[in-house]
Design a protein around this nucleic acid. Structure first.
Length: 577
RNA sequence: GGUCCCGUGGUGCAGUUUGGAGUGCACGCCGCCCUGUCAAGGCGGAGGUCGCGGGUUCAAAUCCCGUCGGGACCGCCA
């Protein structure tokens, strides 16, 4: 195989018996039986192989060794069925210690879960463990599958700059002070959004890149400052065609990672997702859908429900015994913390509905509720009455809290969410705020609503969702200045302001921008789910902790005051109080 | 910016509720014994700022305050 080794540890099988083999790796374990017999398990990323040492050489955990010997069948009765290489061993071993090692700070074997802070401090040891070997190799397989899918579909891979110009909209950016122009700064891109649209103007009608993106926002299980996107943009395409390009890459990646190709990705409109799941990233792995009850209580006597804009309920099947008063109170508090005025709970019994508010509901209302929600004795029904968006949000959150499995538990349920609203609420001045970004193309048939009822305009924006995690989003962009002007106007952005904020993109669009659209897939999120992890740090070689530190390197660290001086900036003393 | 959980030899845990000697378990580590083990086994040993600082108390791993570190979530992430 190479000059140092003829085989990898994990590949040795009975068919190799009789061959002379050299393997290289780390000492996983040794079992000594006196001076003349020791078993040493040597590990590389392919697995373990047992080496029989008769020369009394002293090797210890994690020593790096090269062992040369004869592959042979193990003696009768000593095979190890738990080990892929368990029928064979390497005998007559000559051991070469390539490097000694201190005992590892935590076991490299997987039997005990080690504190993540310790793992990150010694990440180079952690990476030797099966879990990280598996995860980062899944990542590699996914990268490759996606690249190949994009090449196959005629896309060109083009890199865009990391040093970009600060942009006023969107997430907080990391900034880089300029040495040549003290007081001016570059920003590290939140995404190559503008650059890839400029590539469309430049005639690269199918572009992709596995792009580094940086966002200086607080970290979560599914968010790191630094992450990768499969970034795609194409010209002269429809929304359906963009969805096809992305589907192909994602399904190829899933197939490459899991061995099984998922079925074609289903679609749901944003409105449907909101009404049925109370979320724009619905987790389709479980039911518990939101059920419309507004009409049931159209003329109710119950004050909490009377006159409410929207009433919906969910059925928590079979949890009546489990959800005691304390837990129901906690759910009520949670509902209130999200903005509900209250939460009505009803326990279904053989006799009827058991609830503090049952006496305010008519027999007919009770019967209707039970029927709509398919209620069975032992269920708990949760009902919220409020503005429609509050009801969706509260019940959507409770649905997830009560029913959602860990993200990495199968089955994989991919879904496209389409027809997002163009705007989402209004700012303090009453101007509609873009749900995606202000360059998103509205539906042609909704264009006239821009001037009359902007909050009802649907946009050609779409998200890809997997098991309740947003994998990515994209849109068809506005390429015509007259439509862009109408959108800016609807948002209350003046021509001068638009020019100041988005000038150079708008400028480029004057020179023949083709119709175009694209998408970006969050690589770590997809890979984490495919690898069975519910935290993206597990699929990143050297991630940051939640506070943005790297326990291994110590980053961030101080710099020489001269460097600060050279950049023409000054560090303020730490804040008091 | 906020809410909640965690921090005890190298690792994983128990001990904290109800204050009483760093008290215990498993793994690892070091030494000795052991020729068919495989989470080898036997005997012996070393290893502790109970994250850190302050307070209460005769007495603090344990109670209180602060702080640092880790994690989950809300805000935030067009």
């Amino acid at each position: 195989m190479t000059q140092m080794r003829t085989h990898q540890c994990g590949e040795l099988r009975p068919e190799h018996a009789g061959q002379t083999a050299s393997v290289c790796g780390w000492v996983a374990r040794r079992r000594e039986h006196g001076e003349h017999l020791a078993f040493v398990d040597v590990r590389d990323h392919t697995g373990l192989v047992q080496c029989v040492i008769n020369t009394g050489i002293d090797v210890r955990s994690e020593y790096v060794v090269r062992i040369t010997g004869t592959v042979r069948m193990r003696p009768e009765g000593t095979t190890n069925a738990d080990l892929p290489t368990g029928e064979v061993e390497i005998g007559d071993c000559e051991v070469e210690i390539l490097n000694e090692a201190e005992p590892p700070p935590f076991p490299v074997s997987e039997r005990v879960e080690t504190d993540e802070g310790v793992r990150l401090k010694y990440r180079y040891v952690d990476l030797r463990r099966d879990r990280m070997q598996r995860n980062l190799r899944v990542r590699s397989v996914v990268n490759r599958a996606m690249r190949e899918a994009m090449y196959r579909q005629g896309f060109a891979e083009i890199e865009t700059p990391l040093l970009w110009v600060p942009t006023p909209e969107g997430s907080r950016e990391f900034i880089v002070p300029s040495r040549k122009m003290p007081g001016s700064f570059y920003s590290l891109p939140q995404s190559p959004q503008i650059a890839k649209q400029l590539l469309m103007v430049g005639g690269f009608d199918r572009y992709f890149q596995i792009a580094t993106c940086l966002r200086d926002e607080d970290l979560r299980a599914d968010r790191q400052w630094e992450f990768k996107q499969l970034d795609i943009e194409a010209s002269f395409v429809t929304q359906d065609e963009v969805l096809e390009f992305v589907s192909e890459a994602v399904l190829d990646a899933a197939e490459a990672a899991t061995g099984e190709r998922p079925p074609p990705i289903e679609r749901i409109t944003w409105l449907d997702a909101a009404e049925r799941f109370g979320s724009d990233k619905p987790d389709l792995r479980f039911g518990m859908e939101l059920v419309e009850l507004t009409d049931v209580f159209a003329s109710t006597e119950f004050k909490a429900f009377a006159g409410a804009g929207c009433i919906k309920g969910i059925r928590v099947a079979g949890k009546a015994d489990e959800l005691g008063r304390n837990k129901l109170d906690a759910l009520t508090d949670k509902a209130k913390s999200i903005g509900a005025k209250g939460l009505v709970w009803l326990k279904v019994t053989a006799e009827g509905l058991d609830s503090p508010v049952a006496k305010f509901l008519s027999d007919d209302e009770q019967a209707q509720v039970r029927k709509r929600l398919d209620a069975e004795p032992g269920d708990v029904l949760l009902i919220v009455a409020d503005d429609r968006h509050v009801v969706r949000n509260v019940l959507g959150t409770l649905r997830n809290d009560l029913g959602r499995p860990p993200v990495s538990e199968g089955p994989y349920r991919y879904v496209w969410v389409t027809e997002f609203p163009m705007f989402e609420g209004t700012d303090d001045a009453g101007n509609p705020q873009p749900a995606h970004h202000p360059f998103t193309m509205p539906f042609a048939e909704d264009l006239d609503l821009l001037e009359t009822d902007p909050l009802r305009v649907r946009s050609q924006a779409y998200d890809l969702v997997l098991n309740g995690w947003e994998l990515g989003s994209g849109s068809i962009r506005i390429h015509r200045s007259d439509i862009q002007a109408r959108v800016f106007k609807a948002m209350g952005i003046s021509d001068e302001e638009a020019q100041a904020k988005f000038g150079f993109l708008m400028g480029a669009f004057r020179y023949g921008a083709p119709p175009h659209g694209g998408f970006a897939v969050g690589m770590e999120r997809l890979i984490a789910i495919l690898a069975g992890e519910d935290n993206i740090r597990e699929v990143i070689a050297f991630p940051k902790t939640q506070s943005g530190l790297d326990p291994m390197s110590g980053a961030p660290g101080p710099v020489d005051p001269k460097q600060i001086e050279e950049l023409g900036i000054r560090v303020l003393p730490p804040k008091r109080d």
